[in-house]
């Protein structure tokens, strides 16, 4: 899957594109681990171009969240499409993750 990686100040912004399912979640996992390895202050995941995610994608993000908490990196999910958000709601993980309307809002809330 196509995943953009951009460094913006003290944050790393990951921008995956396409469906995140069992065939693509490994790619996302690889990029997330790489991004977290540098122990950045923030990792923002821009999900605006992800129209579908199944539990393998959710599991990848849960794993990343656990790593980020251990090393005090702030991990924020941004611009979730409703279809993707509903999977997090079903699993009640929308209460566990930090979710922002978009990357800009996440950046503002983190810097303030």
């Amino acid at each position: 899957m196509d995943i953009g990686v951009q460094k913006e100040g003290d944050a790393v912004v990951l921008s995956p594109e396409g469906d995140v399912d069992l065939s693509t979640s490994k790619d996302l996992q690889h990029h997330l681990k790489q991004a977290l390895q540098g122990k950045p202050v923030r990792v923002l995941i821009d999900l605006s171009r992800v129209s579908y995610m199944d539990s393998s994608g959710v599991a990848t993000l849960v794993e990343a969240m656990q790593i980020s908490r251990r090393q005090s990196t702030r991990l924020v999910l941004c611009s979730m499409q409703q279809r993707v958000k509903s999977v997090f709601e079903i699993a009640r993980l929308d209460r566990v993750f930090e979710i922002a309307e978009n990357v800009e809002v996440a950046g503002d809330s983190c810097s303030g």
Binding site: S55, A59, V62, E63, Q66, I90, A91, R92, V96
Partner: peptide, 16 residues
């Protein structure tokens, strides 16, 4: 669901 960890969500989602 209180057990927050990767994996094991599939059957729960199906039943939901």
């Amino acid at each position: 669901l209180d057990d927050i960890r990767p994996g094991g969500l599939g059957v729960y989602i199906i039943r939901q």
